[in-house]
Every structure is written in structure tokens, then in C-alpha cells.
């Protein structure tokens, strides 16, 4: 049996008295879409931040491709193919859409200690960036300023940037939040297509998307994993229904 691509072991993080990550252990296997669901404030974003290196856990380990990466910073993890998207859109607003993506390509293609040649004329960067924009359906807006995009377009761009890092494991923090029906459908379709090349951990409140895409679902409640299993198993778990899904199903 091969080890999981990502192994999280006994992760803990507290803010004062709040146990925001409480002894979380989980595995993400190569090739799967592993959804994390849970009510607002359950600690989903905080968990992703610890996995991506933005936040240090108080204790516990994160193992990725068999290596202990708990002490590595975000940049090192991204270079190993562990990328994330942000729930709160994090863009370079005065850069064009294309530049936002091209700079992510630049990060993995050659040195950035180059001082004279205009970066915007580098075909290799622009072409790869354009491909990522095509993937998310944003190629029509390439030359607009990122700050001038609609909310839904910003969410799409957020994803294109993450893809441009060539991730092996992509941590997606509510990628559908704030997108319109059509954009959301387009993105769900994209995740389905990406599945053959990228492993994904998907945090999402849109249950239709979760149950359509996920191979496994973990439920996070008050910083703890309350349940983990196939979508059907989780859907029928009494504890989960009480804690979380009940209200969704009724609504």
C-alpha cells in the first residue's frame, strides 16, 4: 500500500481559549478530490493555512510526498507543488489579469533577478499564463486590470493563478463562493477535468458541487474531524446531520 500524498497528523492550533484546529488527522490520496465541509467558523480556512505554510501549527506534523514539511514556508511548499487558493480573493490589483498569472509562471521559470528585459514581452510566460486563463474561462479579460474585474471573475482569476504554479496538490478554499450560476457550473466542470492531473482538497459550502465532485468528504466541526468517508456515508452519518447537514437538507 502506498502512502497518501498528504498526511496530516495530530494538528493543533489554538487562538487563546479557542481550539481552532483540534487534533486533526487526515489523508489526501493522490488523484482524489477530498472535500472538507463544516459550518462557518469551524476552522477550515485555518486548517488550509497550516497546510500551505501560512500559519504554524502549535503541534502536529504535515507530511507531503513522504517528507515532513511542517517547518517549511509557503514558498518552499509551492515549489514542491502544494498550492492554495484563497477564500478572500488575494490578487495584484494594479496588474493586468494576464500579468497576475504570468508572474506565477515566472516564479517557477528561471531566475527573477533579471533587471532589464521587459517581463511582459516574454512569450513563454504569457503563453502559459494564457492557457491557465483559458482553463478557467477568463481569456477574454487578459488585458484588463485585475482590480477592475467583477467578483466572480476575481474568483476565476484566483484559480488561474493557483493553476499557473503547476500544483500537484491544490488546496481550494471555497472557490465557488461569489461566482454566478454559469461561472460555478464552468468551474465544477473544470475541477472534474483537472482531476486526472491534480489532487484537490476542496472546501466548499455548495453541497451540490461537493457531492458531485468529491471522492471523500471530511466534516470539520469546532476544529475537529467529526466524520470522514464517501459522500454517501457522510450524508447518512447521524452526527453529521445533526451538526451540519440537517439545516442544509431542509433548506
Amino acid at each position: 500500500m502506498t502512502d497518501a500524498l498528504l498526511q496530516v497528523r495530530n494538528l493543533r492550533k489554538t487562538y487563546g481559549a479557542l481550539k481552532v484546529t483540534n487534533d486533526v488527522s487526515l489523508d489526501v490520496h493522490e488523484g482524489e478530490i477530498h472535500a472538507i465541509i463544516g459550518p462557518n467558523g469551524a476552522g477550515k480556512t485555518t486548517l488550509i493555512s497550516q497546510l500551505s505554510g501560512q500559519l504554524r501549527p502549535d503541534s502536529g506534523t504535515v507530511i507531503y510526498t513522504g517528507q515532513d514539511i511542517t517547518a517549511l514556508d509557503m514558498a518552499a511548499r509551492v515549489r514542491m507543488g502544494l498550492a492554495r487558493s484563497f477564500q478572500l480573493t488575494t490578487l495584484l490589483p494594479s496588474f493586468t489579469v494576464l500579468e497576475n498569472v504570468a508572474v506565477a509562471v515566472q516564479a517557477r521559470e528561471g531566475s527573477s533577478f533579471r533587471f532589464f528585459r521587459p517581463a511582459s514581452t516574454e512569450r513563454a510566460l504569457n503563453d502559459q499564463a494564457m492557457e491557465c486563463l483559458n482553463d478557467v474561462g477568463l481569456s477574454g479579460t487578459a488585458s484588463r486590470l485585475a482590480g477592475a474585474l467583477s467578483h466572480g471573475e476575481k474568483r476565476q482569476l484566483e484559480l488561474a493563478i493557483a493553476l499557473a504554479t503547476r500544483p500537484r496538490l491544490l488546496l481550494l478554499d471555497e472557490p465557488l463562493a461569489g461566482t454566478g450560476h454559469e461561472e460555478a457550473a464552468q468551474l465544477v466542470d473544470l475541477f472534474g477535468r483537472l482531476k486526472s492531473r491534480v489532487t484537490m482538497m476542496l472546501i466548499e459550502h455548495d453541497m451540490n458541487a461537493v457531492f458531485a465532485l468529491a471522492d471523500r468528504v471530511s466534516v470539520l466541526v469546532y476544529g475537529e474531524i467529526a466524520a470522514c468517508g464517501t459522500p454517501d456515508a457522510v450524508r447518512n452519518d447521524a452526527k453529521v446531520r445533526a451538526a451540519y447537514l440537517g439545516e442544509e437538507e431542509v433548506a
Binding site: D73, M74, V103, A104, A119
Partner: peptide, 24 residues
């Protein structure tokens, strides 16, 4: 306007974004 300048202005816009694509 160079690669270097792009990283510098990118960091001005959002250091977090730059780290999340692999820059220090």
C-alpha cells in the same frame, strides 16, 4: 518593467499573493 520589477511591485500589491506563488 523587468522580471525583478514585477516581483517588487507584486510584493507591494500583496506579499501574501507573492508567497503563495512561490516567491520569498
Amino acid at each position: 518593467r523587468s522580471r525583478f520589477g514585477r516581483v517588487l511591485t507584486g510584493t507591494r500589491e500583496s506579499a501574501l499573493r507573492m508567497q503563495a506563488i512561490g516567491f520569498r
